[in-house]
Amino acid sequence: MADEKPKEKPREMKAQVTVPYEMAMGRNWHRFFENLKEERIMGTKCGKCSRVFIPPRSFCPRCFEDNEEWVEIGQEGTIETWCYSNLMFYGQTLKPPFIAVQVHLDGTDVGLQHRIAGFDLSDFEKVRELVKSGGRVRVVWNKEKKGNIFDIDYFELIPE
């Protein structure tokens, strides 16, 4: 038998793995999402370094102290960086093309990840004309609120 060759080429075994999790939001994020439902964006502030966080951290990862102060954050901000994605992968939440953005909301010290939308995204060259790092954006609320990050539907560009 030693000289017998396998009859077929090596195969692959295909499978889909599903694993369900239910994860706690914790007090801070729960409060954040509850506020989104009322169209308010709340962040937390570090008592030591004074940085304002969004998502609202319960602690400052650098100072390692509790963030006890809540502050309401502006609904406009500046584009720190952005990315036009035309890449499709399995199980993606947003269907491409979409524009992922890091927004520096007024009154915060960190960037928030979200998306820019509200206009035709099919032509990249046009998108490139419109979206610039340093440009201004504002929140567009979702009419239907579910207490998650999509209560902010998207950020729209504020014309210069």
């Binding site: 998502p55 939440t93 979409f98 992922a100 990840q113 998306r115 990050i149």
Partner: peptide
């Protein structure tokens, strides 16, 4: 909560 929804890989 925050990052995965906007993941572009």
């Amino acid at each position: 909560w925050f990052l995965k929804p906007f993941s572009a890989g």
